[in-house]
Simulated scan of single mutants.
Amino acid sequence: MEQLKLLINKLKNSPNKIRIAMVMGIAGMILIMISEVIPDKKRAPEPESGSETTSDEADTFRKSTENELRSLLEKIEGVGECEVMVSVEGTTEYVYAQNISRYTDEDADRKSDKLDENIVIIENSSGRQALVRRVIRPQISGVVVVCEGGGDIRVNERVLKAVSTALNISSGRVCVESKSK
């Protein structure tokens, strides 16, 4: 500790103290830059902007839609056992509730309108989280149904109508085929 005090006193009385301070400052900045470049092994890698979560949610949505549709179609007369594949576009999107306030700011010779938008945060037993106003599911882009009765034109038409009605998609996006034996 004594040596440190002596070193500081020498630096204070040195004619090159400005140069020494600059060198120490540059050395400090270099150390900071190096610490940002070298990865911290203790820190867990951050997921890329939630892309895994949203694709998992879209996959879950697709699979649950396929299961519900399969269950529904197998109850239709003549369909028999079937397999369903649903294609989706996009990912699950969340729309959060916001507090929006508008006000006019007037100075001596100018007037400006200002808008503040803040996401509503709620507290519950699991902590603080944003209030979700609406969840937008991925868009269904197509459906393929392979069923035992798919070769019969009447069954084919009933399946086509049921799928397009249940999923609110055009019948052109639905393909019904007969299952091979």
Rank of each mutant, 00 (worst) to 15 (best):
V135R: 07
I122Y: 08
V120Y: 06
V120T: 05
R43G: 08
K41D: 14
V84N: 04
I38S: 01
A108Y: 14
S112G: 09
Y103Q: 01
T91K: 04
I136S: 03
R137N: 12
D116V: 14
S112K: 11
C82H: 00
I30G: 00
K111M: 08
R102N: 13
R102P: 09
K41Q: 15
D109A: 12
E77I: 07
E77Y: 05
V120K: 09
E83C: 12
L72A: 06
V95R: 13
E74T: 04
P39K: 01
T104K: 06
T54F: 07
S87T: 10
D116K: 10
L115P: 05
C82V: 01
K114I: 07
I121K: 07
E74V: 08
C82P: 05
I140C: 00
V88Y: 01
M29E: 05
Q129Y: 13
D56L: 15
Y96C: 04
D109F: 13
L131Y: 07
S49W: 12
V79W: 04
E117D: 12
I76Q: 03
A58G: 03
D116C: 09
K111H: 09
E36K: 08
I121T: 12
D40P: 02
I122A: 11
L31F: 10
E46R: 09
V120G: 04
P47S: 02
V135T: 10
T60M: 15
P39A: 01
R70P: 02
